[in-house]
Amino acid sequence: MSTPPTRWALAGAGNRGYGAKFAQLVEEGADVDGEARLADVLVARRARILDIGSGMGRVAAALQARGHEVTAVEPDADLVAQSRRTYPDLSVIHSDVLDVDPADLGAAFDLVVLVGNVMVFLAADTEREVLRRVHDVLAPGGRVLVGFHPVDGPATARAYSPDEFAADAAACGLRVDLRAGSYELHPPAADYAVWVLSRDDRPQTLTSFGHAL
């Protein structure tokens, strides 16, 4: 059975502005490393990191430049091509993550990254399947960094409430360790959600800026 088309793929040409926008920002020398800075502090040096939905490669490349061993996975052919042009030293697997054999990914990962609205662009009804895959490739003590617009995101993205996402994560053996409103860890907000997850077999107090979740 083939993987259904993602919401991103169904948007077709409507997505072209994303790659052009970040190509311009990179060319201008703009700071595009916000997600990577947070990801970097979540792991030790030389960590194994999986970037799912790596897009044009900016987060994966920034993490690789910081000395991590990064595996990037991206299903959009145009973004894969852009990534290879912009960051030729970054290896990218051109595939939907659900079509990748976990055995081909090698050893388990210290961190899995799903930022830039990846979760709200997945194929319909595959959110838990992706989260289960994430759970299964985490190393002991591994963590997950997720970021998306719960509401009012890009036109083709789904609405995904924080409560529903947390329930899906829990159903897949993942626990919310932190919810914030930005990659600079501002308090939780309605328009954007940043999550740090871990496997639920790691005993740890759940907090969101000092409050129990």
Rank of each mutant, 00 (worst) to 15 (best):
L105W: 00
D163C: 07
R133Q: 14
A157I: 15
A212C: 05
G53K: 12
R133M: 14
R66G: 02
G57P: 01
S208T: 15
G12D: 10
G53E: 10
T207G: 10
D78R: 00
R7H: 09
P88V: 01
D99G: 14
D110P: 01
A171R: 01
V146I: 06
R84G: 00
G141Y: 01
V26Y: 10
S54F: 11
E35Y: 08
V196R: 08
A124V: 09
L197P: 02
R37W: 14
G67S: 03
A13H: 04
D136W: 00
P75G: 01
A167V: 05
R84H: 02
I93H: 03
F209G: 15
V32G: 06
A9L: 13
Q24S: 12
Y183T: 01
G17C: 10
D125W: 00
T6K: 11
R179T: 13
G116F: 13
A180G: 08
A61F: 04
P162N: 03
L63T: 00
A11Q: 12
G181I: 07
V26T: 12
L25E: 14
F148G: 10
A103Q: 05
A77G: 06
A193G: 14
R128S: 15
V113M: 09
P75I: 02
W8I: 08
D104F: 03
E74W: 08
E184T: 15
F148T: 02
R48P: 03
W195F: 13
L178N: 09
A169V: 03
A180I: 04
P188M: 04
H211E: 14
A159D: 15
R45L: 11
V118D: 10
E28S: 15
L174K: 04
D99F: 07
V92K: 06
V118A: 11
A61R: 04
G55R: 06
L10K: 14
D40I: 04
W195S: 13
G147N: 01
G142A: 00
F121A: 10
G153V: 12
G55Q: 02
H211W: 09
G55W: 07
P140Q: 08
D76N: 06
Q204I: 15
A170E: 14
D76E: 06
L98M: 13
P187I: 07
R84C: 03
A47C: 02
L174W: 06
L178I: 13
V32H: 11
V137N: 07
R48V: 06
T86V: 06
D163I: 07
A190D: 07
D191A: 10
P203C: 09
G55A: 05
L63I: 00
S54A: 15
R7D: 08
R143C: 05
P5R: 04
L105G: 05
R58S: 00
V144W: 03
R85L: 08
E129C: 11
R84A: 04
F209K: 11
G147M: 01
L122N: 08
G173P: 07
V41L: 13
R66K: 09
D31T: 09
R175I: 12
D99S: 14
A167E: 10
T126P: 04
R58K: 03
L90E: 01
S91N: 04
E35N: 10
V41W: 09
Q64H: 01
E74F: 03
D96L: 13
A193F: 02
P162C: 05
R158T: 15
D125A: 06
G181F: 12
D177Y: 06
D200I: 12
